[in-house]
Nucleic acid binder design. Structure first.
Lengths: 261, 261
DNA sequence: ATGGTATCTTAGGTCTGACCATAAACCATA
DNA sequence: TATGGTTTATGGTCAGACCTAAGATACCAT
C-alpha cells in the first residue's frame, strides 16, 4: 500500500503530485490565438499573420505553426485560404461546428432516431413559445416562405425535407435565443439525415404538415405563446409517432456523412 | 456576361461546374480514418498504425499524417500518447467535444446567461419526465449522493456548484437519452462557468435547492413523470428568476476558459 | 480604350530527413 | 527481489526545400 513509513526516507514527505501536464507547443499556440479570437481582440475577417511570420514571432517551426492553425481550423475559428492574399482569417463560432460534434456523437454512439425525436419534443415547444414572444416581422415571412415550399407539389423528398428543416429552424431563430437555435440546427440536421430514407412522406403527410405549421405560425404571429407551444407539442409528437409507426422502434439509427467542416 | 455564344467554341457546351473542391491531403486521410472509427470498424482503444507506418501506407509525408491525426485529436476521435507503446488510440465520441463546441459558441457569440437558463428550462423538465419513466435504481443513488453533497455545510462554492451540476446531469443520465444527456452536460458546464462568480449562494439557497431536488428525486423514484416534470419546471424557473434578480438581465455574459486540449 | 494572355509574386501545401523527448520494456546490480 | 540505469519504440520539433494556388501586374492584340 501507500501508508506512510517512517523507516523509508522517501515516504517521509507528505506532498503528492498529480500527473504533470506537458502541453504540446502547437496547442499552446492554438490556445493563445484562440483566446484572442474569443475575447474579441480579433474580429471576424481579420487575417492572422502569415505562417512564416508566425514562425518568426512564435519562434517555432513551420510544422508546429501549421498544426496550431489546423486545430483552429477544425474548431471553425479560422478559415484558411490558399494563394496570394491567402492566409488564416478569423471566423466567429457558428452553429456549424456544434452541429458537427452533435452528428459525430450521434453516429459514434449509435443514437437512435427516437432519441432525436424526444430531444426535439423537449426543445421545440419551448422554441415556439419564445418565438411567439420575441418574433420580429421578418421571421414570419421566412416561416411563410418555408411553409409554402413544403406544400409545393413539384418538390421531391429532399426539397420537402429541406423546407421542413428551414421552417423548424426558422421558429428557433424567431425565438431570439442563439443557443436554442444552435441546438435546433444541429438536431434538425441530424434528423434530416435520419429521415432521408423514410419514404412515408406522401401528399397527405405534406398537407397535414403544412396545416400544422400554418396554425403554429399564426399563433406566433398573434404572439400567443401558449397556443404556439401547445400546437408545436402536438405537431412534433405526432410526427414522432408517425415515424415510429413507419419503422420499428429500435431499427432506426442515424447515419450521416457527418462533419467535413 | 456569360450568355451562350455559338461563335465562341468555349461556350458551346452547356454543363456548368461549381467551384472545384481541392481537399487537403491531411483532410482526406483524416476523413478516411474517421469513417473507420464512426462505422465501428475500429473500436474504443484500438491503436492506429504508428505515424511512420501510416506514412508508408498512405504514401504521404509525416507532416501530413500528423496534421490528419491532429484533426482527429481535436475532434476527440483519437487520443495520442507519447513514448514507447504510445500512438493514436481510438476513442468513441463523448459529450466532451460537444461541450467544447457549445462553450466556444457561447463565448464567441457573447451569449447571455439568461439564454442558457431559458434553454435549460426547455430541456430539464422533459429530462425529468423521461427520467421518471426510464430510471434505473442506480440512478437514484447517484441523485441522492449529489443532493447530499449539496447540503454539506462544509462545502465551498465550487463544491456546491459541482454537486449541483452532478445532480442535474444525473437526472439527464437517468432519462436514458444520450443526446439529451449530451446537451445537458454541455449546457450545465457552461452554466457552471457563468454562475461561478454569482455570490448569491447562501445557506438558505442551499436549503431550498436541496429540498426541491429531493422532491423531484422522489417523483422520479415513484415513476411519477408528471410530478417530476412539473416540479423540475418550477425549480429551474425559480433558479433562473433568482439569478435574474442577482444581476441585471443583460449584464451577465458567459466567460469560460473553454475548450482545452 | 478594351480585353485577353503571360508572367510575377505571395501565400499556403507537401516532402525529406534529421534530431529531441518521453515512457514502456528490459536488464544489471545490490 | 526490488531499485535504478539502459535500451528502444514512438510521438514532438526543427530546418529547408520545392510544389501549387491565385491575386497582381504588365503586355499585347484587337
Amino acid at each position: 500500500m501507500e501508508a506512510a513509513d517512517p523507516a523509508n526516507p522517501r515516504s517521509q514527505s507528505e506532498f503528492r503530485l498529480g500527473p504533470v501536464e506537458v502541453p504540446k507547443a502547437s496547442e499552446v499556440l492554438a490556445g493563445e490565438l484562440r483566446e484572442r479570437i474569443l475575447t474579441g481582440e480579433l474580429v471576424e475577417g481579420d487575417p492572422l499573420p502569415a505562417e512564416r511570420e508566425l514562425v518568426k514571432q512564435a519562434q517555432m517551426s513551420r510544422a508546429t505553426v501549421r498544426e496550431a492553425l489546423r486545430i483552429l481550423e477544425v474548431q471553425n475559428l479560422v478559415r484558411v485560404k490558399t494563394g496570394r492574399a491567402g492566409g488564416a482569417f478569423v471566423q466567429r463560432p457558428t452553429t456549424k461546428s456544434m452541429a458537427n460534434s452533435v452528428s459525430m456523437l450521434i453516429r459514434g454512439r449509435r443514437i437512435k432516431l427516437v432519441d432525436l425525436m424526444e430531444t426535439r419534443e423537449a426543445l421545440e415547444p419551448f422554441c415556439a413559445e419564445l418565438a411567439a414572444r420575441n418574433r420580429a416581422d421578418e421571421d414570419l415571412t421566412e416561416l411563410d416562405r418555408a411553409n409554402a415550399a413544403i406544400a409545393e407539389p413539384e418538390a421531391d423528398l429532399a426539397q420537402f425535407l429541406q423546407a421542413n428543416l428551414d421552417w423548424h429552424v426558422g421558429v428557433a431563430v424567431a425565438s431570439r435565443n442563439e443557443l436554442l437555435t444552435g441546438f435546433m440546427s444541429a438536431l434538425s440536421q441530424a434528423i434530416y439525415a435520419g429521415t432521408e430514407n423514410a419514404a412515408f412522406v406522401d401528399t397527405e403527410v405534406r398537407a397535414v404538415t403544412t396545416q400544422a405549421h400554418r396554425a403554429i405560425t399564426n399563433a406566433i404571429r398573434d404572439r400567443d405563446s401558449r397556443a404556439a407551444g401547445r400546437r408545436m407539442r402536438r405537431h412534433v409528437h405526432g410526427y414522432a409517432a408517425a415515424l415510429a409507426l413507419a419503422d420499428e422502434r429500435d431499427a432506426i439509427v442515424v447515419g450521416q456523412p457527418a462533419v467535413g467542416e
